[in-house]
Design a protein around this nucleic acid. Structure first.
Lengths: 153, 153
DNA sequence: TTGATATCATTTGCATACGAATGAATTGGC
DNA sequence: GCCAATTCATTCGTATGCAAATGATATCAA
């Protein structure tokens, strides 16, 4: 009986290890959904600027004139991606572009007056979007979540 | 003195409320970066399938033949997005498509033999990617994080 | 049965996102 | 000063992701 019993335990252990794969429980999948939800909430608060465009403007407002690639690094976009974002901000008159004096490779990006007033107007709305995204959590949970999320990012 | 002191406190409180906007601390921004990091880790483990393609295959393996839009709902992709994903899986011979008998609108998707063996082979690798993504956290932190993240997704 | 409504899928247009290749300009070592 | 390696930016190709418009089919109600 003891023999049978331990065999059973082994089988059960195997079954537990061998559990079916649940996509819904994988970090990557949930991360993707949480991100989707935030983008949707963001769009409801700020209709005329995408989160990446907002990030580029906000960072530019923070650090002042920088090169395109440097700005990309600051907002976690590779060179190809930041180029598209800046192109669209430029087309809308929110940023100005110029070549760096000493280093002619560098494309300097700066806020226009309209870009500055736009980002200053939108920051409170972005904060509302952040709040709404975090609304399912208590204040204590938010603090914990942000700390852990930052470790993963 | 008491008057001055409370005035000072009010000024400090205003300053705290009025703090500069820190993009790096916004959920949306960190969520986007964490997602980027996971996609990168995933690609290092599974080179020939993107996370959405993997998700579609894994879900199909789980639930069996379904309509394209239904599968999209299950993996959180809208109709336009899931179509592209399924088209590419079809082109690679991992899924088969057929029209539903009774309802000729519905496009039924099913795994091919190769699709089945592929997803069964890749699931352990995806689990490794999940582990690596979560590696910066302790087991206890992982449990907390997944619970909170699920609330946001 | 027919006409309005709803559902499933497709297509188009736009916006990230990234790898890889390319070109222009700069820097470092010698 | 010169060549090699590096850096900055651009371009191309591929893959999500979503809104909006369209077409085909089903369903429901009068």
């Amino acid at each position: 009986m003891t023999g049978e019993s331990s065999l059973l335990k082994i089988v059960e252990a195997d079954a537990a290890t061998d559990e079916a794969y649940h996509l819904q429980e994988q970090v990557g999948f949930i991360l993707r959904k949480a991100h989707q939800r935030h983008v949707s909430i963001f769009a409801a608060h700020i209709a005329d600027l995408t989160p990446p465009q907002f990030a580029a403007l906000a960072k530019l407002h923070d650090v002042g004139e920088t090169s395109q690639n440097q700005l990309g690094t600051l907002v976690a976009m590779d060179a190809a991606t930041i180029k598209g974002v800046i192109d669209r901000l430029k087309a809308r008159g929110l940023v100005d572009l110029s070549r760096h004096d000493a280093d002619k490779r560098r494309l300097m990006v700066s806020l226009t007056a309209e870009g500055r007033s736009t980002i200053e107007r939108l920051i409170p709305l972005a904060q509302q979007a952040t709040q709404e995204t975090l609304a399912p959590l208590t204040d204590k949970e938010i603090a914990i979540f942000l700390k852990l999320l930052a470790k993963l990012a």
